[in-house]
């Protein structure tokens, strides 16, 4: 009984802190996305990219983030694993991770005009065969940053 009470308190506490941190992170992402709206532009599209402008610099840029859920999210996901269905607690985490990785990549290449051929990769870092392992995931966003020569 005491174990159950401790578990409930822990879940309530981590639900509160997790929700607060998530809201704060989303707010932070929004502000940074707005700040970077004009430059550098990102393109997920064509592999063969052409331009008539003079190019000053071309380089590979990457942004990485390793993310894991809080105790509450992992707990709920573990319960859902038993019954199956959508792992909703991880959906918001994946969204945060994806946007954060893209933002980090863009922040690294602030000087560039455009980042082309952007790709997003994910790597599971947890041990799939160990049920005790904490679910965590690395998201890597990478692309080719292109900076034009300044027009005279």
């Amino acid at each position: 009984m005491l174990d159950l009470i401790i578990l409930i308190l822990l879940l309530l506490l981590t639900y509160g802190t997790g929700s607060y941190l998530e809201k704060r992170h989303f707010k932070n992402i929004q502000q940074r996305e707005i700040a970077l709206i004009r430059k550098p532009i990102i393109s997920f599209g064509a592999k063969k990219w052409t331009t008539n402008k003079k190019i000053k610099k071309i380089e590979l840029v990457a942004g990485e983030v390793v993310i894991s859920g809080d105790y509450f999210k992992n707990f709920v996901a573990s319960l859902k694993n038993f019954f199956g269905g959508r792992l909703t607690p991880f959906e918001s985490i994946m969204d945060r991770a994806r946007r954060e990785a893209i933002l980090r990549m863009r922040e690294k290449a602030k000087y560039a005009n455009i980042i082309v051929n952007v790709r997003i990769e994910s790597v599971m870092l947890s041990d799939l065969y160990n049920p005790q392992s904490i679910p965590q995931c690395a998201i890597i966003a990478y692309g080719t940053a292109i900076t034009y020569e300044k027009e005279q």
Binding site: Y15, I34, I37, T88, P89, E91, R98
Partner: peptide
């Protein structure tokens, strides 16, 4: 853009607490 971001279609609208 800020207004568009308020209504983010990429994030699940399910309430985790209610779900739990």
């Amino acid at each position: 853009l800020a207004l568009i971001q308020e209504d983010n279609i990429n994030v699940s609208t399910t309430n985790e607490g209610k779900d739990f």
